[in-house]
Amino acid sequence: MRLSYERKKGLYGYGFIALWFIGALFFFIIPVFESLYYSFFSVTPETGYLAITKLTDSSGAVNYFLNYRNAFLRDAYFSTYLVSVLRDMLINTPIIIIFSLFVAIVINQEFRGKTFARAVFFLPVIIATGPVYSIITGDLSTTGAAEADQFSSMFSSDMVDELLEFVGIYGISDTLTETISTLTSDILNLIWKCGIQIIIFLSALQGIPASAKEAAAIEGATSWEFFWKITIAYISPMLLVNLIYTIIDTFADPTNLVMERIIQQQDDWLYGYAAAMAWSYFLIVLVVIGIVFALMNKVVYYDD
């Protein structure tokens, strides 16, 4: 039997992804559906297997969504943590995006020591994911060593409050001053979180065609106009990628409050409950990403 060229190529395609598919089936797809299944039941480990029993509410009727109801209505922490993680994400994501875009634009320019500067700016990618980062920022205080704060305290200051008071503004809005001061005092944390985003933006900036730059220069565009009308347009696909990366990175960080709560439930052998929490959390993340997609869809420009 002779296959057409296209069919043959298609078969080779299956060949190339076969390895991944087998792995994904056992290590990803089946576990995903299993954990979804767990989330509707009470799951406790017994020797040799997981005991899966149906959940019954107070009246004795079977209720498959009891785990979900408990997570949102009964759990004293889950909802509060969820709100605080969402709020942090809402504040941090734009800051991270703007800051990394700014840094990427600056280090994309020609200047002496460019290679060194770039190497330094990507350094956090190498270090910032592991326990080294927690030691550096002084979070790793298993003995409750308060002085451990001094690692990063060099860059924290009360400048904003003092400045505002100096100008004569007292207590305008606590949340506002709080946001500003966390922003300024947390520059270490901020810049250590931006490594990947800077890389992505830098690669996008280098993809701006020279013809666009030339055209803008001939028309006499100022740097400001150039930024808004050329740079933003060309990097907008990467802006979307970065936004989504940042959101996922914040959400899936095992040190955020919700994640800690989920892991804690797992450690207490409440597998079904933990799965329900994880799934509702994941669905919320998906909704957030969906909203970002819908909003960015109008802004993103594809140069075809």
Binding site: F28, E34, Y38, F282
Partner: peptide, 21 residues
């Protein structure tokens, strides 16, 4: 789509089924 899901889904969700496996 499953590849994209692999990026989006926190690994904690699938940890217990993986452990049992």
């Amino acid at each position: 789509f499953f590849v994209i899901l692999m990026i989006l889904m926190p690994s904690q969700i699938i940890l217990i089924p993986q452990y049992m496996f």
